[in-house]
């Protein structure tokens, strides 16, 4: 166990990298989720179908395969070069985005029809209603779900190690290869646990505040 001590700094750095890519992917997921989520609740049936295809695809294919597809496959299609970091971020964003669509959709649908009618009676247009009435309430459902997605991204980022992106897990593996001990993996596990469990507790508190706050 002591042999891993000099490497603790490296591992913490790896954790920060994991955190960084996950946060970036979360932001992109949110963007994708909101855009596609709005499409998914729109009245155009073709658009709704397209949104559903996207979500079904992402949820029916392993994350690893999606990452491989983006890293190895897309460059062939678009004739560009992607670094592991870029490919991982794109894949994680698309992955998180699909779950975000569900979160956004549930959030929007949690706001009762009566609210829409009241807004219409007050002659608020679609976008105004969305912004001032629906969104603030939708957040109560979407935010806890988003925190769950963040946790999935933190865990999912470890898969990016397979295409050569050096984040926490890969760092631990590298250290393990040089000192032949189980410890680096164990420490990495603890770091993942601290990040994810901490987030889930935070998410729990957020959810509780929403439940007991003004309804």
């Amino acid at each position: 166990m002591e042999r891993v001590l000099p490497y603790l700094g490296l591992l913490v750095r790896g954790a920060l990298i994991t955190l960084e890519i996950s946060t970036l992917s979360l932001a992109c997921s949110l963007l994708i989720g909101v855009l596609v989520g709005l499409v998914a609740t729109s009245r155009a049936s073709a658009a709704r179908a397209a949104a559903r295809v996207y979500v079904e695809f992402v949820r029916s294919v392993p994350l690893l395969v999606q990452i491989f597809f983006v890293y190895y496959g897309l460059p062939l299609m678009f004739r560009l070069n992607l670094s592991p970091y870029q490919a991982a971020t794109i894949a994680l964003s698309l992955y998180g985005g699909a779950y975000m669509v569900e979160a956004v959709r549930s959030g929007i649908q949690s706001v009762g029809k009566l609210q829409w009618e009241a807004a219409r009676a007050l002659s608020l247009g679609y976008w105004r209603t969305m912004a001032h009435i629906v969104a603030p309430q939708a957040i109560r459902v979407t935010l806890p779900a988003a925190i769950g997605i963040f946790i999935s991204l933190l865990k999912g980022s470890s898969v990016a190690s397979i295409i050569g992106f050096v984040e926490l897990l890969q760092t631990a593996i590298n250290i393990r290869n040089s000192i032949f001990s189980l410890s680096p993996l164990f420490v990495a596990g603890v770091l993942y646990f601290l990040m994810c469990y901490g987030l889930s507790r935070f998410g729990g508190r957020v959810e509780a505040r929403f439940r007991y706050g003004a309804s």
Binding site: G156, A188, G189, Y192
Partner: peptide
């Protein structure tokens, strides 16, 4: 197990 990645255990 809920707060750590699968891959960690596969390697481990």
């Amino acid at each position: 197990l809920r707060n750590t990645p699968d891959l960690l255990y596969i390697y481990g």
